[in-house]
Nucleic acid binder design. Structure first.
Length: 271
DNA sequence: AAAAGCCCCTGGATGC
DNA sequence: TGCATCCAGGGGCTTT
C-alpha cells in the first residue's frame, strides 16, 4: 500500500501530536517482518523528539535511540487518545502521554525496529543502501541520469529497487513513466538525457501531487486520523488495463515485470 | 557487481 | 455454497 506519498501523509498526520510525548508502554501482537530488537520495557519513559521519513521508512526519534517503522504492503498507522481494543491485525501499540500510536498490518510485511541511533547497525543495515530522496534537494539530475545509464535492468525495475531513488513503488513508477512518456521495459542504459530529465521531473511531480491528495487508497490505506487518500482517482494508467488511455484513447496495456504488474500506454510510451 | 527469483502473510475478487 | 486460483501498495535475501 504505502509508497512515499502514503508514508509522508501518514507522518504529517501525527508527527506534531506525538512530538514531546513520553512513552508509557508497548504492546506487541503477532510477529512482524523483524523482531523489535530490544526489550519493550526499555522504551518506557523515553521522550518522542519528532518523526522523520527516509524513503518508505518512518523514523521516530526518541531522546535515546530511534524506532524505524515500515508499513510493508498492508500497513497503516493510527494515532488516537483512546484506541479501541486491539484487533487481530493490530500488531504494535506505542502508548504515550499524548495518545496511542498503533500499527495495523494484516499481511505483516511491515516492521518496527529499535536502534540506538540511525547509524547503529540495526538501522544502518536498512537505511544505508537507500538512494536519493526524490522530493529533497539531493535529487540530482546528472546523478540520476548517470545512475540509470550504468544499468541494464528495465527502467521500472530500477525505480522500484530504491537504491538510486527512494519511495517510488508500483503505482508511482507506472504513473511517472507514463508522464515521462517512457516505456517501462526500456533498459536504464538506453534512457536518453531528455528522457531522464522528463522522468526526474515526473517523479517529483507525481509524488508531490499524491501527497497533496492524501496519497492513494486502493483498499484500506488511511492516515493516522483515519482519512483516506484520493490520488488513485487521478491515475493515468495504474490499474487501468484495457481501459482507454486518458490522453490518446489507446487501451492501457498490462505486463508483468519481476512479479509485479506494470501498466502503460503503448502509444504514449513508445520507447 | 548486477540482475532475477523467492519468499514472508492475509484477504478480496473471480471462476468453476 | 464451497473450493481453487490469482492478485495486491514491499523489499531483504539467495541464487544466477
Amino acid at each position: 500500500m504505502p509508497e512515499l506519498p502514503e508514508v509522508e501523509v501518514t507522518r504529517l498526520s501525527f508527527a506534531d501530536r506525538i512530538t514531546g510525548a513520553r512513552v508509557e508502554g508497548v504492546r506487541l501482537g503477532k510477529p512482524l517482518r523483524w523482531p523489535l530488537g530490544c526489550d519493550p520495557a526499555e522504551l518506557v519513559g523515553r521522550a518522542v523528539r519528532g518523526v522523520r521519513r527516509r524513503g518508505k521508512y518512518l523514523l521516530l526519534d526518541l531522546d535515546r535511540g530511534v524506532l524505524l517503522l515500515h508499513l510493508g504492503m498492508s500497513g497503516s498507522l493510527s494515532f488516537a487518545a483512546r484506541q479501541a481494543p486491539a484487533g487481530v491485525h493490530d500488531h504494535f501499540d506505542l502508548a504515550t502521554s499524548h495518545g496511542v500510536l498503533r500499527l495495523h498490518d494484516p499481511r505483516r510485511f511491515g516492521a518496527v525496529v529499535y536502534a540506538d541511533g540511525e547509524t547503529a547497525p540495526a538501522a544502518a543495515r536498512l537505511l544505508d543502501k537507500l538512494g536519493m530522496e526524490p522530493l529533497g534537494p539531493d535529487f540530482d539530475l546528472p546523478a540520476f541520469h548517470a545512475g540509470l545509464r550504468q544499468r541494464q535492468a528495465a527502467i521500472k525495475q530500477i525505480l522500484l529497487a530504491g537504491d538510486l531513488v527512494v519511495g517510488v513503488g508500483n503505482i508511482y513508477a507506472c504513473e511517472a513513466l507514463f508522464l515521462a512518456r517512457i516505456r517501462p521495459t526500456v533498459r536504464g542504459a538506453r534512457v536518453s538525457k531528455p528522457q531522464s530529465m522528463r522522468l526526474h521531473g515526473a517523479i517529483r511531480d507525481v509524488l508531490a501531487r499524491a501527497v497533496q491528495k492524501g496519497g492513494s487508497t486502493l483498499r484500506d490505506f488511511s492516515n493516522a486520523h483515519g482519512e483516506r487518500g484520493y490520488f488513485q482517482l487521478e491515475a493515468m494508467v495504474y490499474g487501468r488495463a484495457g481501459e482507454p488511455c486518458r490522453v490518446c484513447g489507446t487501451p492501457v496495456r498490462w505486463v508483468r515485470q519481476g512479479q509485479r504488474s506494470t501498466y502503460f500506454c503503448p502509444t504514449c510510451q513508445k520507447h
